[in-house]
Amino acid sequence: MTTRCELTAAVFEAALDGSLTDDQRRHAETCDACQAGLAQVPRFDGQLRAAAQSLVTAPLPVTALEAGPAAGPRLGTESVLRLMAAAAIAGVVLLAAQSGYLRVGAPPAAAASPEATFRLHIVVRNYRPATELLEVRSGAGAGAVILEIPVAGCRIAYMAVPLGDAWSVVFNGQREAAGPSSPIAGEVRQDLSVRISRPIATTVVFDGVPEEASLDADALAGTVLSPCR
């Protein structure tokens, strides 16, 4: 009959991790409960293997290991660079449009309203917003993080919401004061290119002045910027 021993759980865990000490080994030699605990480890591993194998109904093709980086959530360097460029350009486009200096595509029908706001939606992966940004503006509920990037003449806040392995980041920008446009594009470019250079943008939606437009990140990378008149 096996008696209980308060060390059995620790002996089992140590054996599982391969970190069994000499003391534990010596103790197990004289303790039925711990011997039984030790014997459970290979049994557990065998059953874990059998259970995992029972979930396998089709093997992976051998070429899966040889294939290049998957076009999955983790993108290749080339894609990252392209999207980083797109994100940086998006920032410049949006803020320049906000300032009234630049517009995307055809000349707009109307001038930008000083009260106009823009919204940039970027889904980023492998991103740690708290370590990247300047200031946590307010405690946010439900896992959201709201941060603020101070830029001359412009207030930009963004909210990062975790979506599984990704972060959904929404930038909201608003000019702080009505009046003539200020030449902030250069400053913004520098500021935003730093902030947006690490995340991987997969979706960029521009919802702003003077008309709503949706811009795909890929398409945006080749966008020609024209000065506004």
Binding site: T63, A64, A67, G68, A70, A71, P73, A166
Partner: peptide
């Protein structure tokens, strides 16, 4: 390498 490549995408999507 199409099948391996596509499989790898699928496995990555499973992981994430």
């Amino acid at each position: 390498a199409l099948e391996g490549w596509v499989t790898r995408i699928a496995v990555n999507l499973c992981y994430s």
